[in-house]
């Protein structure tokens, strides 16, 4: 009886070699929506326009900009679009609403949400969806590979993307 440990593998005949992954098909989207959510980059969605603001912006001005321009959150960046925080509707409610007269001249840096959750432009819309649904983050900034802000995704943009690809 041959020793199984020492048994020599039979040499492959010419043309006999087969790729062990040849039957691996990977993820096959079932429809247009699945392809849009899981196979495309997040830049396939609307991620612009966006505007960035300096951390020195007085909080009173920030609230004015949010009201006038209908922004739900402001992207707070240092030079070169390096994101340092978000200032959201929730920050207004939780931190300044009651005392805006008193705090209005202070820089937005003192009230923003620092180090927000982000996604990269090469990530899929599914990741943004998970951050919103599971993480509870309403606005997710999109960064380039060199960590510069290139856009932002909110629930309205994501919902519109879903509607567009859901089909009839």
């Amino acid at each position: 009886m041959p020793d199984p440990v020492r048994r020599r593998r039979r040499a492959a005949e010419p043309g006999e070699f087969s790729d062990p992954l040849q039957k691996f098909e990977g993820y096959q989207p079932a429809d247009q929506l699945e392809e849009a959510l899981f196979c495309r980059p997040v830049t396939d969605m609307q991620i612009t326009p966006f505007r960035t603001f300096p951390p020195e912006l007085p909080v009173r001005e920030a609230v004015g900009i949010m009201a006038e321009e209908d922004f739900f959150c402001l992207l707070i960046c240092e030079q070169d679009r390096k994101l340092i925080g978000l200032f959201t509707e929730r920050d207004v409610l939780m931190k300044v609403a009651d005392r805006l007269d008193e705090l209005g001249d202070q820089p937005i840096r003192d009230f923003m949400t620092p180090d927000p959750r982000i996604i990269y432009e090469t990530d899929t819309p599914a990741k943004a969806l998970n951050l919103m649904a599971e993480g509870g983050f309403r606005h997710v900034p999109v960064l380039s590979i060199d960590d510069k802000v290139v856009g932002i995704i909110g629930p309205q943009r994501l919902a519109r993307y879903l509607f567009t690809h859901m089909g009839d």
């Binding site: 993820y27 699945e34 959510l37 899981f38 899929t124 599914a126 990741k127 969806l129 998970n130 951050l131 919103m132 649904a133 599971e134 509870g136 309403r138 629930p155 309205q156 994501l158 919902a159 879903l162």
Partner: peptide
């Protein structure tokens, strides 16, 4: 919005909820 996002994420648990 949040309720609907959760609904869609629940619809695709193996593709969405595994995301980092």
């Amino acid at each position: 919005q949040k309720g609907l996002m959760e609904y869609v994420a629940d619809h695709f648990p193996r593709q969405v909820k595994v995301q980092e």
